[in-house]
């Protein structure tokens, strides 16, 4: 008999929900706080809506961890229909609270249903790419231990790069990590920061800083090629995401240069969600590659 597997995650995938090619998929929405008011992503409250308010109204926004009650409800609702639940969670070093809640829920349902919490070490874009690759793996293999091991492999082989014209969005959100070194530049620079799956500390790290988008894109591509060499990867899964149209030329440049110089197996053009826009800010874009 086939094992019934449910995958759950949240709306910080960097890809739209329609892009998830798996029938048994459920997701939660992160609460976004603008001032005192809490928002969840809807057709009205989107990443574009928030980015526009950042520019026009100079507002500040923050997110909070996923709700324990909502997570429990989701499990409760599905507990009898599935043999295994895989929860793809944003990196525990980015949000320890969310991962702890996921662990508590796993403990609560121990003996009733098996839950695997995958600590992705990723956020924007990276969570989505790990989800896509894990779906491929589940389609090939249904053994729990094998899935667990392969998920671990995916995590350490996934690398995200972000071009964020204004690092203060990341800083205000408390996710700046080691990229703090790039803050406060007198020169207008484009910081390129990253989340490296093979970095045990799982913090945002500085990759480099450039003056033009073209230079930033070259830096990212060179860094990915170097990583591919290190990991001995010959084909990779890629997701490119952006929040607004202001940098479409840069993103097209990145896509073209990428496709012409790197052997890509699957290229996904993602979508920025409301919660992700908090950290990217206007004009930001990112690229995630999975080398397994």
């Amino acid at each position: 008999m086939n094992m019934r597997i449910l995958i759950i995650s949240a709306d910080n995938l960097g890809i739209s929900i329609e892009q998830v090619p798996y029938q048994h998929f459920e997701y939660l929405k992160y609460p976004v706080l603008v001032g005192e008011k809490e928002y969840r992503e809807t057709e009205t409250f989107t990443a574009s809506w928030l980015l526009e308010r950042f520019i026009k109204e100079k507002i500040t926004a923050k997110s909070s961890s996923l709700s324990r009650a909502e997570m429990t409800d989701l499990i409760e609702k599905n507990i009898n229909n599935y043999d295994l639940i895989i929860h793809i969670v944003m990196g525990s070093n980015m949000s320890a609270a969310t991962f702890n809640i996921a662990e508590e829920v796993r403990e609560k349902y121990k003996g009733k249903v098996n839950i695997i919490n995958v600590d992705t070490r990723q956020v924007v874009g990276g969570v989505g790419v790990i989800l896509l690759r894990l779906i491929d793996i589940i389609k090939e293999n249904e053994k729990e231990e094998e899935i667990r091991n392969r998920a671990r492999e995916l995590v350490v082989n996934t690398f995200s790069y972000y071009v964020t014209p204004d690092l203060n969005y990341l800083y205000r959100g408390g996710r700046i990590g080691k990229a703090k070194a790039f803050l406060g530049s007198v020169l207008r620079v484009l910081p390129v920061v990253g989340l490296m799956g093979d970095d045990p500390e799982g913090e945002v790290v500085p990759i480099g800083q450039e003056r033009t988008y073209k230079q930033a894109n070259s830096l990212i591509i060179n860094s990915i090629m170097e990583k591919m060499n290190e990991q001995k990867a010959d084909k990779i899964t890629v997701s490119i995401i952006s929040g607004d149209e202001s940098n479409s030329e840069a993103i097209n440049g990145l896509r073209q240069e990428f496709v012409s110089s790197v052997p890509v197996e699957k290229l996904v053009t993602g979508k920025l969600h409301l919660v992700e826009a908090i950290y990217m800010g206007p004009g930001g874009y990112g690229i995630t590659v999975c080398m397994k």
Partner: peptide, 9 residues
């Protein structure tokens, strides 16, 4: 020690 992953299985 500093290179040991924090989230070991």
């Amino acid at each position: 020690l500093s290179n040991i992953p924090g989230n070991l299985p």
